[in-house]
Design a protein around this nucleic acid. Structure first.
Lengths: 116, 116
DNA sequence: TCCCGTTGTTCGTAACTTGTGAACTAATGG
DNA sequence: CCATTAGTTCACAAGTTACGAACAACGGGA
């Protein structure tokens, strides 16, 4: 398995970020990662929006989010721990990410997973 | 030729907007439309970013921007006059569109076409 | 240590999407 | 009307994405 690749902040592009977030599944994953107060593992998302996803598909989605610079993934034992890179993103893109998430949450009934 | 379709504000989605703006050509077209103080015709963009585009491709890009709700197109004689729908979009999505454009302009050297 | 179960990745390919030339529609001016 | 200019539609080639099957990595027993 090749090592995970996380782009440096300066290599993250607006187009790349928008591309990654343009998919409904990825946008929801990203929003839930953001809404959660601790790292989430990939398999938390095997069911997204009442729809079951194959794990190969899920793995691709995480890869795209990661390589767009939106999330950071760390292997912890057998699991993958994912967090958003919102602080770095804000440094680079200002309020863009936040305002996207706000618009998304507003139009999707602001459901969010409250974690223990 | 079938009539142009512009979605109502309430039918515009975050995902649809992000999808439309995720393409570098469309993002640049949208940014230039926004930066310009009068309506622009499609063929203004036959060359984008020093690269020539076939007009069928350009027509598709405008269609996608239009149907995502980002621009309004009106036929004026033989030409198509395009403007952004930023006011309506702001009503629906708050500062999202503005902050995307700002991030884009910031990272692309803020070149913009100043019109007569 | 050696299996076993769990988690996630890679690969191959089928299904879908996008880009583009050619043909077409529409409006205008001569 | 015919020619010209602007943009759209169509069909298909080229490119991209989704997903099952096989694989790799780790951790916990026995």
């Amino acid at each position: 398995m090749r090592p995970l690749h996380h782009p440096a902040v300066r290599d993250i592009t607006v187009e790349g970020v928008l591309y990654a977030l343009a998919d409904p599944v990825r946008l929801q994953i990203f929003a839930e990662l953001r809404g959660s107060d601790c790292a989430q593992i990939c398999s938390e998302f095997l069911v997204v929006d009442k729809k079951e996803l194959p794990k190969s598909t899920l793995s691709q989605h995480f890869k795209i989010l990661r390589e767009a610079g939106l999330i950071r993934s760390e292997r912890k034992g057998v699991e993958m721990h994912n967090t958003t890179r919102c602080e770095e993103l804000q440094e680079r893109f200002g309020p863009m990410i936040r305002s996207i998430l706000e618009a998304y949450l507003r139009s999707h009934g602001r459901r969010r997973k409250r974690k223990a």
